[in-house]
Design a protein around this nucleic acid. Structure first.
Lengths: 319, 319
DNA sequence: CTGAAAGCGCTTACAG
DNA sequence: CTGAAAGCGCTTACAG
């Protein structure tokens, strides 16, 4: 490249460095030659000199949860807008953690992790490598880890409270994969509130956050238990359950049984579902991730920050 | 790292290179030190030596089309499984092309591009930089460009044919963004078949491939035209139109009007829509992309390959 | 089998 | 204002 333009290596470098001193003529010559050859400076070679790579790892959850799909698409868009380039992992379940280790071979500016997609080993490795980690949907108090989360317990508590006021007494809950923190918290949000009224959760099922999973779970519940309120760990399962109730049973929603979801994904508002749900504020989540990222990058050694977002009840027609 | 293990740089490198000669003891020492420090060889520094980066750019379309969302999630999962690491772009519309130029600063093994998300300038730049390009959902005959696409024209022709046999005569079409190839081809698939029967498309609208766009488009059509068959350029718009017909009009689907989509996204099969549609085979598309990628990588100079996938009519309950 | 040296594509002091 | 040199973290011939 340098010889193509008939200048020194340094000159080429300066031509692409905003604010660097370089004769206008010479700069023009470099840019012209670059255009002709399709040349652009190798960002990775530059990073060996200490520049940021602007590469961030993004680890999402399983692909059965549409909320995760929306999360990743929005996050990618915002990251792009901030000139950060996401290397995306996830969707294939079991091997995700191994994949993260592979991606740690690249000099990442940061790693953004959704929910419970990876374990503590990954995070420990990142801190050894000095790669900041931002957790979305999970909390971890650690030296230089930042977190954004929505009050899960509070969210389903709000839903349960509303349902109780409406006179519901026979509650069931369909949660995400057993063992996940968020799934557990959403469940206890219901059960803790019920206990205050001297009530129990009559039935609990765990599914995979998918539409089909929700439909199967409600079928299994109805085979054994009579209920008048169903709270679900996410919207997709709530929609699956709602669909099953409407098409496979004589039960009327909301006349006989109330259905409430969690997340407020785009589809929840479609007239065909019009799902009452708990908003897990996605805009705010993505916005916070970006804010925490910039803030961490400009001040790598500051203490970890934990940002809590408040859930909000969205009343539509299924409660 | 070398001094931490008390060995030479070369030894460290060999410890991480499968099949390289290195004393077992020494190797163990290197690996132990690496584990302790969280060290892993910088893949980018390695790439300066000529190794592949295993980084591939993935450019998706606007985020309003759920099919693109499914495409990206599946593609990412398959790429991960093949130890390729996708830098994902897109979702924010206008600036996508500029973003691609930015990402071309990284040494990519290949660029995978969905539909009409970027123009010819990007592709030309890639060929100058010797970065292979794989196009999904669009065809471009060029030296070293590979393409996968589904027969759009054939797809809507199949749908139209079925509708005609059912006795439908008054057709409308809701297409994707005006000017997009795929949108145009899907439209002429309908109109060409109608012409054979001496029929015309009574109404055409262009929307943004979203649910809401479909609902607005059908409203606008019904305000001016009486129809008995609606073909849509994708499922999301078909579902939006279907939803509008069911909730905002007295028209019965399929009694009074048939609705057919395109893509066969997961939701189309949900009982709440049960949409008759044209399958745009996603598994096969992603599979082909991976195949073309491997094949191109192992034989960079072979001629461009164009892989056509056949659409298939999926009959459900809305026709 | 293994170390020292060269070199990948850059940028950043350092001289001029 | 700008070139020559050093060095970022690696790997790959090249000697031994």
């Amino acid at each position: 490249m340098a010889e193509a333009a008939g200048v020194s290596r340094s000159a080429v470098s300066r031509a692409f460095t905003p604010g660097a001193y370089l004769d206008a003529d010479k700069k023009e010559r470099v840019l012209a030659a670059a255009f002709k050859l399709g040349y652009r400076p190798n960002a990775l070679a530059a990073s060996l000199q200490g520049a940021r790579t602007n590469l961030v790892g993004v680890v999402s959850g399983k692909r059965s949860n549409p909320y995760d799909g929306e999360w990743i698409v929005r996050l990618v868009a915002e990251l792009n807008a901030a000139d950060k380039w996401p290397i995306v992992l996830g969707g294939n379940g079991a091997d995700t953690e191994q994949d993260v280790f592979s991606v740690l071979h690249y000099p990442l500016d940061a790693l953004i992790v959704r929910g419970g997609s990876v374990g503590p080993a990954v995070i420990e490795n990142c801190s050894k490598l000095n790669i900041p980690v931002i957790l979305s949907g999970r909390v971890l108090e650690a030296p230089r880890i930042d977190c954004v989360y929505t009050g899960n317990h509070r969210g389903t508590e709000l839903a349960t409270d509303m349902l109780l006021k409406k006179g519901r007494r026979k509650f069931a809950f369909i949660g995400g994969p057993a063992g996940w923190n968020s799934a557990q918290e959403r469940q206890t949000g219901v059960s803790d509130r019920l206990v205050q009224e001297g009530l129990d959760l009559l039935a609990v099922r765990n599914a995979d956050y998918s539409f089909e999973g929700g439909a199967e779970a409600i079928a299994s519940i109805l085979a054994e238990t009579e209920i008048d309120a169903l709270v679900c760990g996410n919207d997709a399962m709530a929609m699956g359950a709602l669909s099953y109730l409407r098409h496979q049973t004589d039960l009327d929603v909301p006349e006989d049984v109330s259905v409430v979801g969690f997340d407020d994904i785009a589809m929840a508002a479609w007239p065909d579902f019009d799902l009452t749900t708990v908003r897990n504020p996605q805009d705010a989540t993505v916005f916070e991730i970006l804010r925490l990222l910039e803030s961490r990058l400009s001040n790598p050694d500051k203490p970890g920050e934990i940002s809590r977002l408040e859930p909000e009840l969205v009343l539509r027609s299924t409660h």
